[in-house]
């Protein structure tokens, strides 16, 4: 068969927007934001053009891993309400196309980041893509209820990559930003899983509420919150934190703790009465919590850039 006889029998023609959707633009937005904070909070200055190009590479790399995830998970995505409208299960994009786009953009983003920034950042981006697409999506997601704990690492790497773009190495500040997202992810997703339970049950994904019940899940949310609090406050005592970060973080963590304790005290009867009101509010707050932590780091970096220091604060790490 030659080009001349080529006919496309598919009824729907995939549009550009469908391919954009394949890259999980909402996740990409978060990645761009956290990577930018990691980059700008770092002590070494990066030329704006290099910074822009590097953040773009990190975002495209994250998008590529999203496409690979959608390609692999197309069977369960079709079952779950939340994901049934994604490009592959809704028939707008063929699975092979998604695989090709995912692999191509993965290689391209890693290679370009290596050229634009440095090889350490490129290596870290390659590892992130591998971690999300292979370790999380292929191995753990369907195998263990701790899937989200390890999967959270993939989302935690971008600020670290941003930091490495600027400095060329991993510092304690980068590790703390990584840990903040890593430990934040489980309580965030388990709060969601508490009321999205049916979806995960139908798709046979071993989320904690499905395998161990809601009581164990509530206990886990509280336990992870207790681990999260010192990690979230710790950056205040590094060169990227300070008094402003300390103040904001303490307030946010008190609210987070209050929410987690509140969820811990509730049971399934309570959720029937108010249709998971507290769980939904806690879930929404977790997003604000992470966002404000990173916004504060960005504000502190901007203040430092203009030589504005809000009093002295101990630097322990």
């Amino acid at each position: 068969m030659t080009d001349a006889t080529y006919t496309d029998t598919r009824e729907y023609e995939a549009q550009f927007g469908d391919y954009v959707e394949l890259l999980k633009p909402r996740v990409m937005r978060l990645v761009i934001f956290t990577a930018a904070v990691g980059l700008f909070a770092a002590p070494s200055a990066v030329h704006p053009v290099i910074a822009f190009a590097s953040i773009l590479c990190i975002a495209v790399g994250a998008g590529a891993s999203g496409a690979l995830n959608m390609w692999w998970d197309r069977d369960i995505d079709a079952i779950m309400k939340r994901t049934a409208g994604r490009p592959i299960p809704s028939g707008r994009i063929q699975p092979n196309e998604a695989l090709a786009i995912g692999l191509t953009l993965s290689f391209l983003s890693v290679m370009m980041l290596g050229l634009f920034a440095n090889l350490a950042a490129a290596g870290l981006l390659a590892f992130t893509i591998f971690f999300y697409a292979v370790v999380y999506s292929m191995w753990l997601k369907r195998a263990t209820p701790q899937n989200i704990v390890i999967g959270g690492a993939a989302g935690a790497f971008p600020p670290m990559i941003g930091w490495v773009v600027a400095t060329g190495s991993i510092g304690v500040e980068a590790v703390l930003m990584f840990l903040l997202i890593l430990i934040w992810t489980p309580p965030h997703f388990w709060a969601l899983a508490l009321w999205r339970n049916e979806d995960y049950k139908a798709a046979k994904i071993p989320m904690l509420p499905v395998t161990h019940g809601t009581r164990v899940t509530r206990r886990h949310i509280l336990a992870y919150t207790l681990v999260l609090i010192p990690i979230a406050i710790a950056p205040a005592f590094t060169q990227i934190g300070g008094s402003l970060y300390f103040g904001v973080s303490v307030v946010l963590n008190l609210i987070f703790l209050w929410g987690a304790v509140h969820l811990f005290r509730r049971n399934d009867e309570d959720t029937v009465v108010d249709d998971f009101r507290a769980e939904k509010r806690f879930f929404a707050f977790t997003i604000l919590y992470l966002f404000l932590h990173f916004v504060t780091l960005l504000v502190v970096a901007a203040l430092r850039a203009y030589d504005l220091h809000l009093g002295s604060f101990p630097v322990w790490f």
């Binding site: 549009q15 550009f16 030329h47 290099i50 190009a53």
Partner: peptide
């Protein structure tokens, strides 16, 4: 495929500009 092709064209053009800008810097 007009819309799709124009968007891909713009993207490739943007990529060329980006590589050029980084090279200059």
């Amino acid at each position: 495929r007009k819309g799709r092709n124009s968007a891909v064209g713009l993207l490739l053009g943007g990529f060329v500009v980006l590589v050029f800008a980084v090279s200059i810097v």
